[in-house]
Design a protein around this nucleic acid. Structure first.
Lengths: 267, 267
DNA sequence: AAAATTAGTGTAAGGCATGAACAGTTCATG
DNA sequence: CATGAACTGTTCATGCCTTACACTAATTTT
């Protein structure tokens, strides 16, 4: 298993030739002080702009976050924003970091299972507060303080397993992906208004087509879907997959400690 | 564990009052014949439009798929496309179905592990052929033939475990999410040109900051990142997390068969 | 005070999805 | 066979979006 996360760090930085000119938003996110300025005092601040963007996102989703809307809410024109931000992409980076915030997980979990579980729960809870976090077009590695804080928290929890570093990375990637998928699913379900009658209509449309081509398993599910009328995605849904992953990691620990070095990771 | 997938089916259909007017793209995807037309013969077809959109996506990514671009490539104006499609969202649905295509997995795997493994591999392989599949803004349930085909294939493979239906859904959701996350990661890594020297510069920038706030685990990873110079995301990376999930499902099977009914799913 | 630098405005270009009105083509029916 | 309905593709238009450039006004340094 190559260390995929580490890759993302390195690779995403391909554009930054020196430490002084970092990729958009990075220096800002890390609070690097810009050189003292000479002209008129800025009437606004990057923090204020990001906060306004977050307001918009909280109210109407990520699609509503546009430069003109942010600017007009601040009483300036869209172009003025570009005195504070190099591009919208930079805003998105800062928005992600601010939206995620610091990870709120217990620092001293009683077991690695508990630590990982609360991490995943905290992750999903965060996306419930700010659903638009899942819509942010963030590509590449997490490089901002809070995003790295989340990663650190997860790795800290996993470190208690005593697994080698390469395995920790693999597990972190697995869990991060799971948390993200689950949060996405929960968001999708929450976003659509459940209407059992019309859902049944589609089931009636699809079921014969599915049966006709032999997709019986899916057809059965669809047919049996009517009973499940409440569309809430409860914590049990989050828990199920998580439990499988925890069990899988447990098996890995046994393999690593008991089975000796007969197999390399992932095989 | 509520049956999350099934939810998605029902809920997504909330907009379709009757079978005759289905949500955008659904009837088309299922090949429902439209009523015989009277006017002039259409110079183009939905299939052709989707194929052109796929060309554009393959060449320049999903961002390049715009109505004007598709239209100009077909020699018509953008508005003419709306004689074939109700909206861009509909195009995206068809694009997803066409891009994924039928699942190419062995129909008779020798074990459920093998079946699931080849499903995940096929999934990831597909996203390597059409990376833009991961960018499509598809919300809600898979309701098109090929997407349901992929789900069916996964459930078929999982059915060999003998687990109850509710568990199968949970496992399918878990695996689908994993495959998607992994594919996303692989795509991100592949998309960025790896440049170890500059990656090291960022590591040098970040490491002291991370150490200063006590993020030693991440800092160590970052420091040790230099050796990993090749940015390929090999099959081992896909395999690692998959193996954990397979182990987790194995544990679940043991729990379900051996442990009796002392615990409900996911607890 | 003068010069340099910067904040915000106005203008504008180029891109996007999509709506409405319209011209021309073709088919079904009288 | 003719006529009208239906349909395709065009033009015109709206309202978004990001972002580049030139300009004015304010402020700090020299």
């Amino acid at each position: 298993m190559n260390s995929s996360w580490v890759y993302r760090y390195c690779v995403a930085m391909a554009q930054s030739p020196s430490t002084t000119d970092l990729p958009p938003g990075l220096a800002l996110a890390w609070g690097v002080q810009p050189a003292p300025r000479r002209g008129p005092k800025p009437a606004h601040s990057v923090e204020g702009i990001v906060a306004t963007a977050m307001e918009l996102a909280d109210e109407s989703g990520y699609a509503a976050v546009s430069m003109p809307k942010i600017a007009s809410r601040l009483g300036i024109t869209a172009n003025a924003l570009y005195r504070y931000l190099a591009s919208k992409e930079e805003l998105v980076v800062l928005l992600a970091d601010t939206g995620w915030g610091p990870p709120d997980v217990p620092t001293q979990p009683s077991s690695w299972q508990e630590g990982v579980t609360s991490w995943v729960r905290a992750f999903v809870a965060r996306t419930r507060i700010h659903p638009w976090l899942l819509d942010l077009p963030v590509r590449g590695a997490p490089l901002t303080p809070n995003l790295l804080g989340w990663l650190e928290a997860l790795l800290d929890a996993l470190a208690e397993t005593g697994l080698p570093a390469a395995d920790l990375l693999g597990c972190a990637t697995l869990l991060d992906g799971y948390a993200r998928s689950t949060a996405n699913l929960a968001r999708d379900l929450h976003a659509m208004s459940p209407s059992p009658t019309e859902g049944a209509a589609v089931a009636a449309f699809l079921e014969p087509l599915l049966r006709a081509r032999g997709s019986d398993v899916v057809a059965d599910l669809l047919g049996g879907a009517a009973p499940y009328a409440e569309a809430t995605f409860d914590d049990g849904d989050v828990e199920f997959g998580l439990q499988r992953i925890l069990d899988g990691i447990t098996t890995l620990i046994q393999k690593r400690t008991g089975g000796g070095a007969d197999r390399r990771a992932g095989t």
